[in-house]
Design a protein around this nucleic acid. Structure first.
Lengths: 347, 347
DNA sequence: CTGAAAGCGCTTACAG
DNA sequence: CTGAAAGCGCTTACAG
């Protein structure tokens, strides 16, 4: 029953059903002003020709696409993969379609995506995560009416509605916890890629300070995101050949924590027993790996729901200039951290 | 510089640049038959009004969308997330856009997606993975001209171009390896959700048989995919309270292997030392976790490239009825498996 | 309840 | 090199 090259159109249906295309359109859109007879004939014509209305034509005529764009920074990252899954489900419940775009942590790609999104005439844009260069986004936002809501991204000096985690507090509370377990020599492992990480680091130092620990004992190890992705942690070596090695590592994400764990393993150090490891995000896998990972949980679903609520409100014409919501992370203690008992832990 | 409610159109540009919309269209499409003057005026009008042509209108007029649909079974699964990343990059190189759809392992959702895809007038469809109910896909394929290529899915009795892994061989070679390490009591942990898993299990039994191991010593533990997702492995308990517990577990995916590892950990059993664990897929995380996971590597990128090549060929009008390619998995030995030394391993 | 007509924002022959 | 016209496949007032 292959239909040949040219797709069947509303005119084909009208002809076969012996009605006007207006009437076909009416049954397509469930109008109640169609006679039973016409309705039946149209329906059967549709079935006979295996007709599906063109979304393209419909969108053009209706001047709306009924779709919302989501741009994530890296779909390979489970955190974003899950976000896209959740956003799609939430939007479906509201009758919207989702178009996902992957920015690959690259500003130039993000720029392209914004162009595409604009030409698609989507009705709203959700962006989750992001690197620090937001110029494309800012310029796009200031030149367009498209409702935009950002998650996990701060754009200073511009009024874009934003849903964020209190990353500084997260960093501080994680560090507080490690210190409360007796750790005095804590290494913060990160990249300086996102504002979120910068704030987590800030919180790290705040906590040290609050506990009267000199800044030098709060060691920071930074390397490019790319090296983390490849699992290249050689840069950590110097910190662990010294006799006064850190007794705890606080990584700026679960993903990095897992790489730190592998590094320690290869150096013959045991997680928890020798070195406590703490993550950030509470990725699904954090509770599965052995030992399971202590981490700061990000209330991702709540944040996404809030963002979608905001976006839908904006689309509905609502005003939310200056809308900023900040969520609090939650301490999750698992197996990868342990109290430091006695001085034997350091040396 | 907000533009007000109605988006600017090609007519606005034509008016401002004092040319016809034909000419605007020409510069939009980089036609070389435009005078310098006209070109410059159009360009500056476009910039002045921040104009972006409507992809919807363009697609309708051109009768092509330039986009390809990818349907994955569960975007939360890193395997699929990576696939979508890779497909997008490959397609970009060929000038196509990608629209990703998530079937959530649900036949009814897959059906809906197929409807959407059809109405979008995409130019091709790639499907990766899939549960065993392919009726929607088969019926769709037989009623439409849309080029379709399947990856990791077998549809028997219908001629849909397919790229598959030789899962039976993968299952057999993995089991061969475990047996070669002295394991005689191997547990195969799986769900019976996909054909791939069924074939892996088949290979498992083939290998046992080839090594003269009675079927009863090849234990199979099956539970629904859903329980695996939730990490509920209580069903494994009976196998491990018996004194003659398995010395090796072969899981039908890396993901399941990780849950098995957690289960063993909670029972006080050490991976590799007490029980060898073997996965399937070689997910990125397999080499990061501690101990790193022995597994069968699936040449995912090569398979995707082959699938895209096939799809592009079909789109170009090529004929590939009966196109079936089968790739071979590769044995990857890491830390989670160990030779069984001496009878002490069994009891 | 139904159809003819205009329009959505583009592209594409066709003349000139 | 350029413009007027027709057309892509729908929807939406407007008459009747």
């Amino acid at each position: 029953m292959k239909t040949g090259k040219a797709p069947v159109t509303i005119n084909d249906i009208a002809r076969l059903a012996k009605v006007s295309k207006s009437t076909v359109s009416r049954v397509l859109n469930n109008a109640d002003t169609v006679s039973e007879l016409a309705h039946a004939r149209v329906k059967s014509a549709i079935r006979a020709l295996n007709y599906r209305p063109s979304a393209t034509a419909r969108n053009l005529a209706r001047r709306r696409s009924n779709t919302i764009a989501l741009v994530v920074q890296d779909i390979r990252n489970p955190y974003y993969a899950f976000a896209s899954w959740f956003v799609e489900n939430e939007l479906r419940a509201h009758g919207f379609q989702l178009a996902v775009f992957n920015a690959d942590n690259t500003a130039s790609l993000e720029r392209e995506i914004l162009e595409t999104v604009a030409s698609m005439r989507v009705e709203g844009l959700l962006s989750v995560g992001g690197n620090r260069d937001a110029t494309a986004l800012v310029s796009f936002h200031s030149h367009s009416d498209l409702p935009i809501v950002l998650i996990d991204r701060e754009v200073k000096g511009y009024d874009i509605p934003t849903i964020n985690l209190d990353n500084a507090q997260g960093g501080a509370r994680a560090t507080d916890y490690l210190i409360s377990q007796g750790h005095r020599s804590v290494l913060f492992a990160t990249s300086d890629f996102t504002d979120a990480e910068l704030h987590r680091r800030e919180g790290f130092f705040q906590s040290l300070h609050a506990h009267g620990i000199p800044r030098q004992q709060g060691i920071v190890f930074t390397q490019e995101e790319d090296k983390w992705s490849r699992g290249d942690c050689r840069g950590l070596l110097p910190f662990f050949i010294s006799p006064r090695r850190p007794t705890a590592v606080f990584a700026s994400s679960d993903f990095k924590a897992m790489h730190v764990i592998r590094f320690l393993h290869e150096r013959g150090l045991k997680v928890a027993d020798d070195v406590s490891v703490f993550g950030f995000d509470d990725t699904p896998i954090a509770s599965v790996i052995v030992p399971s990972l202590s981490t700061m949980r990000q209330p991702q679903q709540a944040m996404i729901k809030a963002a979608i609520g905001l976006l839908l409100c904006l689309i509905g014409g609502g005003d939310s200039s200056g809308a900023q919501r900040r969520f609090l992370p939650e301490l999750v203690i698992r197996e990868s951290t342990r109290p430091l008992c006695g001085p034997s832990g350091i040396d």
